[in-house]
Amino acid sequence: MFAAKISEDGVLVLSGRFDAEQVEKARIAFNRIGRTTVVDCKDLDYVSSAGLGVLLMTQKRLRDSGSELILANINKHIKNIFEYAGLDKIFEIR
């Protein structure tokens, strides 16, 4: 089960499995973001290239207005994916 919820303090909290089936649900949440936002991935188990695409396109849109997504608490498997895809140079990962 995948969920993307914005907390009261403005953090986007992702959980579950961010696969190709979840892209439309995820886009709704990411399209609401209009400023620099921390994405908490503590409970995110998995991301596929479809999920990376949503993150990448959101980062592009935000950077155009001087903002960005900052990723926090990503697990080692997802971190590997970011490194292999060269996305560790495009996102600040905390």
């Binding site: 290239s49 695409g53 990448l56 396109m57 592009k60 950077r63």
Partner: peptide
Amino acid sequence: LQDRKPGGL
């Protein structure tokens, strides 16, 4: 980033 596209990843 400005040249990146999600396809092919």
